[in-house]
Each structure stands twice: as structure tokens, then as C-alpha cells.
Design a protein around this nucleic acid. Structure first.
Lengths: 235, 235
DNA sequence: GCATCGCCTTGACGCAGGTCAAGTCGTGGA
DNA sequence: TCCACGACTTGACCTGCGTCAAGGCGATGC
């Protein structure tokens, strides 16, 4: 089972494809081919339809999930009923790490926004890999640390910046990430508003204001052309 | 250097004390005595006076720091000048993990709130331990994951709850953590306000309101007696 | 022990953004 | 291709919280 094979070609066999899938996952980069094979053997890949809830508050969620294609929205609902979008995950990202060690009850929801290809790994298995292949743990640490950093930014933006500034910063970030001036929102405007700690009405008004200023141009509900990036940076 | 010693007694020699210090750090729990000794040899303990800045935005901060005694405030200052308190760390907590792998420039500030005993470990050393002792990485993952969870709570509270509710939840949390009805604020009210995404004026007004309702009693600037925990829970 | 600085409190006021409502439009599912 | 639901927009209103200001008090450092 765990003897290393000389060639690194994925080959044409059925799980060769699965192995190359695993090899492209950031947290497994740095593992050699034999280790990739071992993990691929324990992975359960699945095509998940759009709008399917992966887990919800109250669930005991025993899987670490890795997204190969598609996007997933992670949000939380407060005691008072407020829905807060926390982040949007895409190809290469993982979720479900919270209960990795102490399998606690989740207060998160995760829903697919598009059809998605997702691999599930049981927590016991992941824990085993983390102990045997420390580089996997190191990469996860780096990812979690980055995630903490952006959630901290979310806190200080919501607490300290006004609505226009938050919306502008979000658009600039999107444009920089995509390296394009015409961006497609990864989520609905309603969800963008929630992510930014705003109501949909306020987001709509600010975007309309930007459009009046000639800084952006909106097409349909999702596409925004950015006409003046510098003006947005200065908001 | 790395031969295991049979006895687990800290002994009376100078660095025996240092070893027992290291052994009490949560992320090093689970290591055996020989491993603890190895780490103790690389550790630089220091007594840091009150109000000393451990690192600031723009610093390249090459140390993971572990707090043995005392408390440390971590905050960030946004582009527009808003100061946001992110968390308060105490005995057993670590900080400086952000640049653990890619030594990026920090946008955080960390200041001691009391005199503190703090150990510094170079990132290269910690990285080495993480690769050799995966249980350390696992504990760090667990801690970071918990930290992410509470920062997410901070986001949804600031975005979704009104001022009174945030203040009440904060007091209830403090009382539960200390398991007492008379709590001492770990930070100034000004900092509590920042942590909760409020101005000091609003915090002061809400606390005065709670006192008018007979739910709390304030003594001096730091001590608050909680007279009606249930009422606070229902705010 | 005392002085001083900065924290805390209280008041008055204004406004950013939330709420409610109604109408339009886009989009995804059949 | 079409339909229907939900997302989005726009307007009017209003309130909670921030801002500015001034005074009292407490805690820190000498």
C-alpha cells in the first residue's frame, strides 16, 4: 500500500485523476507522490449541486472538506437572527477545520453557490496526516493565520469605516484579485452587503452614487465595470 | 544534548525552572521531558515592563512570543486612523504567529498592559519544532481555529447587534470566564469600547443604563458587580 | 503622599444608515 | 422559451450612535 512508485505520471487509470486532484490542493503541496496516493485513497470526492447546505448550525460536522471547483459561502446567524456572511471559499480552499480536534458543535452554515466538486476527509484521517506529515499542518497554519488576518480586517472595517469606504475597498480588492477592471461579484449583492455589515439598501445606494460619479458602471446584477480605480481608493 | 533523562523532576538547577515554565505552555503540552529541555534551551525569557510595545505596524517581527504572566493587548490601526482592539492575551497565549512562515510585515500592534514575563522564539526555531513535533502544530492549529471563531463572533456582533446587547454579552462572557459576579475589566473602558466597536461615550451610557436598571454596580473604573446576570442575558 | 495626566462621564446635537414600503428587473428552473 | 420568485432599487422617514464639549475623578508615577 505505501511503497513509493518511481514514476510521477498521473497515468490513465481511474484514480490517477484523483491523485492529481489531491496534488493540486495547496495544503497537500510538498508531499511526495506516494503520500499523495495514500491520501487519495482515503478521499471521498463528490459533485455537489448548487444551493446545497454542506453543514449547518447544530450539526456535528465530522469532515474536513476541500473544494476542487466551485464556490462555497460560509455564514453565521446570530441569536437575534442577523445573518453574517463570513467568507467565500473557492478552488483549493478547505472548510470544516473548526472541529478538527475537539469535534464541537458548529455555529456556521456552509452552502454551495455553484455546482462544486468537493472532497471530504474524516477528521480522524486528517488528524493522522497532520501528525505524520507536519508540512500539511504547517500549510494549514499558514492558511488559518491568513484567514484570521482577513477576518480581523473585516472587524476593523465594519467598526471603523463608513459605508462608502467599505464598498469602495471591497471593489478595489476584487479588481486587484481578478486583475481586471470588469469584475463579477462572487455572491449576490445581498450577500456582499451582509459581508460588509450593511443592508442591501445602503449598498445599492452607495453603488448608485459611485455610478453617478462616473467611477463604476453596473451591468445586470453581478457585473461591475470599474472606470476609476484611483477615485475608489481615495474614498 | 538530546539524550532523554530518566527522571522528570524539574530539579533545582537554574534552567530547571525554565523547563517547568515551558512545560506549562499549552502548545508544548504533550511533549516529553527531553523535548521540553531542548526547547527550553532555545528560549529567551524576559521580564517586560508595563506599556511596552512588543511590535508595531511596519515592523518585521521575527519572534513567536509566549506569555507566561501578565496580559498583552493586540490592536490594529486602520488607514483612516481608527484604533481597533482585536484581543487581549494572557498566560499561556502566544502571539506573532502571523509571520510564522512567510515573514511578512505586520499591521498589528502589541503592547503589554501589565508587567509581563514573555519568552521569545525565533521563527526559524519554531518552524523546526513544528516540523519535528507535529503535536505542537496540532495544538497551534486548534488555538488559531478558536481565535478565528471568536473574531468571527466579534464581526457578527458588531455588524448585527446594538450597543446594549454587545455590552451585555461582553459582561456575561467576562462573568462566565471568571466564574464570579464581581468582575475586573482586563482593559480600560476605552479599550473595551474599541473592542466592541463603540465609542467610550456610548459604552459609558449603556453601563449607566444597566446601573439604573439595577443590573450592575460599578466601583471605580475597572470593577463591575453583576447583580442580575439573567437580565443581561436577555438584552 | 501628592500632583498630574488621561480616563471617564454627562449633555446637546446632527446625521449616517437602518427600517418600511412599493415597484422593477433579472435569473434560474421547468 | 417562459414564468415566477427573489433580488435589487428608490423613496420617505426616523432613530441610535457618533461627535463635540466641558467637567470630575481615578490611577499612575514621582
Amino acid at each position: 500500500m505505501d511503497h513509493p512508485r518511481g514514476h510521477t505520471e498521473p497515468g490513465a487509470e481511474a484514480d490517477g485523476e484523483l491523485e492529481s486532484l489531491v496534488a493540486r490542493v495547496p495544503i497537500f503541496s510538498g508531499l511526495d507522490h506516494g503520500q499523495i496516493r495514500e491520501i487519495a485513497a482515503r478521499v471521498q470526492p463528490r459533485i455537489v449541486p448548487r444551493n446545497e447546505q454542506l453543514y449547518g448550525a447544530g450539526d456535528v460536522n465530522p469532515y474536513l472538506r476541500i473544494i476542487h471547483t466551485g464556490t462555497v459561502k460560509v455564514y453565521r446567524i446570530t441569536e437575534s437572527g442577523h445573518e453574517q456572511v463570513l467568507r467565500v471559499l473557492g478552488a483549493g480552499d478547505f472548510l470544516g477545520e473548526k472541529a478538527l480536534i475537539s469535534p464541537s458543535v458548529s455555529d456556521h452554515f456552509a452552502v454551495t453557490l455553484t455546482e462544486a466538486e468537493i472532497c471530504s476527509l474524516e477528521h480522524a484521517a486528517i488528524r493522522d496526516y497532520l501528525l505524520r506529515y507536519p508540512s500539511v499542518a504547517l500549510t494549514m497554519l499558514e492558511t488559518l493565520s491568513a484567514r484570521l488576518g482577513s477576518t480581523e480586517e473585516q472587524v476593523s472595517a465594519i467598526a471603523g469605516e463608513d459605508a462608502a469606504s467599505r464598498v469602495a475597498t471591497y471593489l478595489v480588492g476584487l479588481a486587484e484579485e481578478l486583475k481586471r477592471n470588469s469584475v463579477a461579484l462572487p455572491i449576490t449583492k445581498k450577500d456582499v452587503a451582509s459581508f460588509l455589515g450593511l443592508t442591501p439598501e445602503t449598498l445599492s445606494r452607495r453603488l448608485a452614487g459611485f455610478e453617478d460619479n462616473g467611477w463604476i458602471h453596473q451591468q445586470g446584477n453581478r457585473r461591475i465595470d470599474i472606470l476609476d480605480l484611483e477615485a475608489l481608493r481615495l474614498v
